[in-house]
């Protein structure tokens, strides 16, 4: 399997919003964050890949199978945790999972029970009595028990307490450890995910503005402080320049290159430091991005 997810020129149109055209490839076994502000199209992207929304144009492939709206086979490779899971409130967890299991020939009920145990989730309890955290856990079990190649998580941990979030991420880490599952995870804040993510896809107004390996992104941005008495030129990649007397501070998206330019200028006491992912994300969202060399 070359890609867990492939998207070509995918478009979904609404009256006042168009998603795409989106082109995206996700490699197997990666954790990929879909980052964007509210209204950027994250949920629409997730629903389109899950086959809940029909696309108007383009091709989608999941684990080498075309996402053909007429045939549902590819859906067996997808595990989807929606942003607002809908349950039949009168059911208990077991009844709900039995219902979901019917749609998945590869459903592994002992794995479902194991996951529920790991989450300390009581499957006999009626869903209407479930806390917000337990609802998320139940929808995770429902999404993962057939061991999908592609797991789509639409901000499932937003609004959960840190204990539940840690449990969720522990299970994710473990599933990543012994399988080739790809996790595509949407978020508008870079919370716990920023540690786990291998790649980040930034979405803005329905378009992908940056698709990058997280470590490359972190490597490419730098904060440079230095002393220089004369007039400083425009540095490549610099998105912000502040100055107090002889002391300059630059924020740059072309770290190495800018640092070399500052050095060549003859600046003194050059001090380089990394930016946090949150700081970088803010610049990227503002449009200050630079695509790192592959």
């Amino acid at each position: 399997m070359e890609y867990a997810l492939g998207m070509r020129d995918v478009e979904v149109g609404f009256r006042n919003f168009t998603l795409g055209p989106l082109d995206l490839d996700l490699k197997p076994g990666r954790v990929v964050g879909l980052v964007g502000p509210n209204g950027s199209g994250k949920t629409t992207t997730m629903k389109t890949i899950a086959g809940i929304l029909d696309r108007d144009a383009g091709l989608i492939e999941v684990c080498d199978q075309p996402a053909d709206p007429e045939k549902g086979v590819w859906k067996e490779s997808v595990g989807y945790v929606p942003d607002k899971p809908i349950f039949y409130e009168w059911m208990n967890g077991t009844a709900f999972l039995d219902l979901v299991a019917r749609f998945y020939p590869r459903w592994d009920s002992s794995f479902a029970r194991e996951l529920a145990d790991r989450f300390h989730l009581d499957l006999e309890e009626k869903i209407k009595r479930h806390s917000a955290g337990n609802r998320v856990k139940l929808s995770l079990v429902a999404a993962l028990a057939h061991r999908p190649g592609l797991a789509l998580f639409d901000e499932p941990t937003a609004g959960l307490d840190p204990v539940v979030r840690t449990e969720v991420f522990d299970v994710l880490c473990e599933m990543m450890d012994n399988g080739n599952m790809t996790v595509f995870y949407s978020t508008h804040i870079l919370d716990d995910l920023h540690r786990l993510a291998d790649d980040l896809v930034f979405l803005e107004r329905g378009r992908i503005i940056l698709d990058v390996a997280k470590d490359d992104l972190i490597d490419s941005w730098r904060r440079l402080r230095f002393q220089y008495a004369g007039e400083v030129p425009e540095f490549s990649g610099a998105v912000r320049h502040t100055q107090q007397g002889r002391v300059h501070e630059l924020i740059t998206s072309a770290g190495e290159k800018t640092q070399a330019e500052v050095g060549a200028l003859g600046a003194e006491s050059i001090r380089a430091s990394a930016l946090t992912l949150e700081e970088i994300a803010v610049h990227v969202m503002k449009g200050d991005y630079h695509v790192p060399d592959a």
Binding site: G29, R30, V31, F169, C173, E174, M176, D177, N178, D192, R195, L196, A197, D198, D199, A213, K214, D215
Partner: peptide
């Protein structure tokens, strides 16, 4: 690589 990633809760690529 995967083991350390899981232990430290960081991405395997990192």
């Amino acid at each position: 690589i995967r083991g350390l990633a899981r232990e430290e809760r960081v991405g395997a690529v990192t």
